[in-house]
Amino acid sequence: MASSHKNTARLNIGIFIAILALCLVVPSGVKNFVSDMFGEFRAPFDILPSHLRDLQKYWSLSSRSKRDLIEAGRDLARLNAALELRVLENETLRSRIKRYEDMFSIPPTGMYKQHIARVARRDLNAWWQQLVIRKGSIDGIKEGSAVIYGGGVVGRIKEVGLFTSVVELVSSRNFRMAAVFEGDDRPVIYQGVGQVSFGSGCGEVTDVYSDMTASVSKPRKLMTSSIAGVFPEGLPIGTVSSLNLNYDGIFKTGRVDLSTNLSALNEVLVLVPIEAEQKK
């Protein structure tokens, strides 16, 4: 009996060593293929709970009384009417912008194709600051595309699978972008710093010119810059309540407080540059 256990343990160790050795000698193309396949295999397991949550929400809403539903319907109708009005206003503004663009020969601003995507999974911890969304390359999502929501920047597409994509959140250490302060056109650099202990994710703004000030009573809004062509201009990233002069005496650095909504997002908008779309 004891010898049989011993043999099994030896076999397991042998298999483990063989797999390790295989990993070392297998060409990187094969490894990438296996990794991608694993991602695709795992995708339904990310999507399914998300669909189940949606279904659960639907059932919980449908179990409400008729009166509640009628009231909700009325509210929705009002909201729809207001939004339709906004849509009309937007149409007017868009046509005006188009006219000005033609008049001054400015390149068109509508450079993104928009994809609305549901959030399937959130990885928000000290290691990862990312979301998995329920849209992938089959829907036209491209790596590096901007991801936003009503409150501003969410992040950037890091990996694209067939049916899902991974979004590197704006709070991630690996997320860096050019930004501007509201009312100032000099570019600064924003970078996420990850999740602080017992708090939400935050970021850091660097290369801020020394004449810029920010205080708790007068915080400054950090906005996106279209300089790199990834994000459209003027979307909020976060707020800066203090700026400290660096050792070099030229630039300041400050902490950026991000929106707390990032950890509770259900739906995001992916902006795929039309240029990239055309290449596809």
Binding site: P187, I189, D248
Partner: peptide, 25 residues
């Protein structure tokens, strides 16, 4: 230029690029 610096900072992969921006005066 300042804009080239900003573009590089945004487009270079933070986790996967040996290229960095060095600021001198």
């Amino acid at each position: 230029s300042i804009s080239q610096h900003a573009i590089l900072a945004e487009k270079l992969r933070v986790d996967n690029s040996a290229v960095q921006i060095y600021t001198d005066t």
